[in-house]
């Protein structure tokens, strides 16, 4: 039976090391199978978060050969197995143990976003053309790969000033909701730090659900912020013709 070598991060928040494992490879295997094999036959204390093994729960996010990926969706026959494959935890978040990271910062950020806010006397009728834009954002499985790959968080460590692509997607889904009456533009500019995003599209490339994060949520939000704060012509039009 064919074998492949994997270098898996073992450690915690204080540091760690790569440990090399040799694992038998069978047809159809994914990286998560390798981790389960290691747990079953070599190191039962190897920590890893997983649940559905169907790319829908967003739990098994890691960095395979340096690329943020879902381990359950990364097939071995798509990897070069002639050299060791590295499996590391998400870099943008603190390691708890081995491949499990503490992503609780994301849940704290989520609480600060103004929730869905309908008008008091809302007529609860919606039409498909109005809701279809935001439906794409509902596909998000909160794997946080976009947060991990975003260089504002990953490299510049701006967790205090920037909410990251996942939550810009959430704000976009609310801002584009036809029955929402909340205004999050000031929040976007001053607290969410949307201007820190320099649209390098890594979040879009990393998204396993293929949400067009940059084109369909971040850029439209940036344009709305421009409408409100940087476009005197639009401000003048709003004054004469009322709010869009």
């Amino acid at each position: 039976m064919a074998e492949a070598t994997f270098r898996v991060f073992r450690g915690d928040k204080n540091g760690g090391e790569e440990v090399e494992y040799t694992v038998p490879v069978t047809e159809g295997m994914v990286v998560l199978d390798v981790i389960h094999h290691i747990q079953g036959y070599t190191d039962p204390d190897l920590a890893c978060r997983w649940n559905c093994k169907a790319a829908k729960c967003g739990s098994c996010s890691a960095e395979v050969n340096g690329k943020p990926s879902l381990m359950c969706k990364t097939r071995l026959d798509h990897l070069p197995l002639d050299r060791p494959v590295t499996v590391h935890p998400l870099k943008a978040f603190p390691v708890i143990k081995d491949l499990a990271t503490d992503v609780s910062w994301n849940f704290e950020v989520n609480k600060k976003i103004k929730p869905f806010t309908p008008k008091p006397d809302t007529d609860w009728v919606m039409y498909q053309p109005d809701v279809e834009r935001a439906q794409e954002f509902r596909k998000c499985i909160e794997c946080f790969l976009c947060q991990n790959v975003c260089h504002v968080l990953r490299e510049h460590d701006k967790h205090d000033n920037f909410i990251g692509p996942r939550f810009l997607v959430r704000v976009a889904s609310l801002e584009m909701h036809p029955l929402d009456n909340g205004n999050r533009l000031e929040y976007l500019k001053d607290e969410a730090g949307i201007a820190l995003c320099n649209i390098t599209k890594c979040c879009t490339e990393a998204c396993p659900e293929e949400i067009h994060i940059t084109d369909n949520s971040i850029i439209p939000l940036k344009e709305r912020v421009v409408d409100e704060y940087y476009d005197p012509l639009m401000r003048l039009l709003r004054k004469f013709f009322g709010k869009k």
Binding site: E63, G66, K67, P68, K91, V149, H151, V152, R154, E155, H156, D157, K158, G193, A195, L196, C197, N198, T200, C202, E205, A206
Partner: peptide, 18 residues
């Protein structure tokens, strides 16, 4: 800034984006 995804850059806490 960055040259490619998940590739290190000249990391700085003074990053201001746009």
């Amino acid at each position: 800034d960055p040259a490619a995804c998940a590739v290190a850059e000249f990391a700085s806490r003074n990053y201001k984006g746009e």
